[in-house]
């Protein structure tokens, strides 16, 4: 019952893009004796899942809400993890970056913020990442997923982006070990584009991407 009330208040604050209120809800809960592990796994992560569901059902969700959701989830998780009784189990590893020639980092930041709460290790390659680097760094980190953000048609569709990564994974026989997810405006305007460029999955927004990446990691591990 207590978790339901905390979750409700936290969800409301995130939906209203009220960062201060969201953090106050969390701090009050901790002061009231709620364990840091419960804050992350029974409040923040279920709220992310509720946001994913809400975004899927409600076309009026907007970029500011996505940003705020990720930022708060990231801030709360960073504040709670040092207070955990033991180190949390890893949810897998991903490498993330923007496609070659693309300098738009907002989508990448939103995805990373949401993944942190899911205990997924993120290797952030930054912006303007070549296909060879995506694959090389994924191998070095033992990553299960390569996440590529592209906000422009030529970086989403071009051979130096996802198509190049797919080609390399195929050549190195890594397609069953590393999955590719793409995101960004061009993929929202053409729902089939992710298949054309050789990705395994596409996410409409950064918050939803967190959930899809979690599923992709599970697929690889199975």
């Amino acid at each position: 019952m207590m978790f339901e009330k905390i979750k409700k208040d936290y969800l409301e604050a995130v939906f209203d893009t009220d960062g201060e209120k969201a953090m106050r809800v969390i701090r009050d809960a901790v002061a009231g004796g709620v364990q840091p592990e419960d804050i992350v796994f029974n409040v923040v992560v279920p709220t992310l899942d509720l946001m994913v569901k809400a975004f899927a059902e409600n076309m009026d969700a907007n970029l500011a809400q996505h940003y705020m959701t990720a930022q708060i989830a990231s801030d709360v998780t960073e504040e709670m993890i040092p207070k955990f009784k033991k180190n949390p189990a890893s949810g897998g590893t991903i490498v993330i970056g923007t496609a070659y020639g693309d300098f738009h980092s907002l989508g990448k930041m939103i995805v990373s913020g949401c993944l942190k709460a899911r205990m997924i290790k993120i290797v952030d390659l930054g912006v303007n990442v070549a296909a060879e680097r995506f694959v090389g760094e994924a191998l070095a980190a033992g990553a299960h997923v390569i996440a590529i953000s592209a906000m422009m048609v030529h970086t989403a569709h071009g051979e130096k982006g996802c198509q190049g990564v797919r080609k390399l994974l195929k050549e190195k026989n890594l397609e069953n070990k590393i999955k590719i997810i793409v995101g960004g405006a061009p993929f929202r305007f053409d729902r089939e584009l992710y298949k054309t460029v050789g990705a395994d999955a596409n996410a409409d927004d950064g918050v939803t991407a967190g959930k899809i990446i979690e599923n992709l990691i599970r697929e690889v591990l199975e």
């Binding site: 020639g101 693309d102 300098f103 303007n128 422009m152 048609v153 030529h154 970086t155 071009g158």
Partner: peptide, 10 residues
């Protein structure tokens, strides 16, 4: 950034 196949980009 001036690419070969798309618009320039800051």
């Amino acid at each position: 950034n001036f690419p070969d196949d798309g618009p320039p980009n800051v």
